[in-house]
């Protein structure tokens, strides 16, 4: 198994971790972080799978570079929206999450 495949498999694990966090964590900050972890997993998978034959592939690398910058912008917008929600409702969670006790909250 080449090292590129290790990257790809790590990416898959990160994606799944992020997905579970996105569903399970009610706090919006944690949801945004989990979403970023999902994104990082996808980037690792893209780059890892593309160079599993041994030679690095510049096309997915360029795509991932673009993706990283867009992910930063999306995260900043998400943080701004989350803070807006905090100003309006006084809490960092979606209205649907209100019912039910959650022990995982910070």
């Amino acid at each position: 198994m080449s090292s590129a495949l290790v990257y790809a498999l790590t990416g898959a694990a990160l994606f799944v971790l992020g997905m579970a966090g996105l569903i399970l964590q009610p706090h919006l900050l944690r949801k945004i972080l989990a979403f970023n972890i999902m994104g990082s997993g996808i980037f690792l998978m893209l780059v890892g799978v593309a160079q599993r034959a041994g030679t690095p592939d510049p096309v997915p690398q360029a795509m991932v570079l673009t993706g990283i910058v867009v992910a930063i912008a999306a995260t900043a917008l998400a943080l701004a929206l989350a803070r807006q929600l905090l100003d309006m409702n006084g809490e960092m969670r979606l209205p649907e999450e209100k019912t039910g006790k959650d022990r995982l909250d910070v």
Partner: peptide, 12 residues
């Protein structure tokens, strides 16, 4: 999520 992760790893 674990099942999905395993399937994803197998596909890779």
């Amino acid at each position: 999520a674990s099942a999905f992760g395993l399937a994803l790893g197998w596909l890779i």
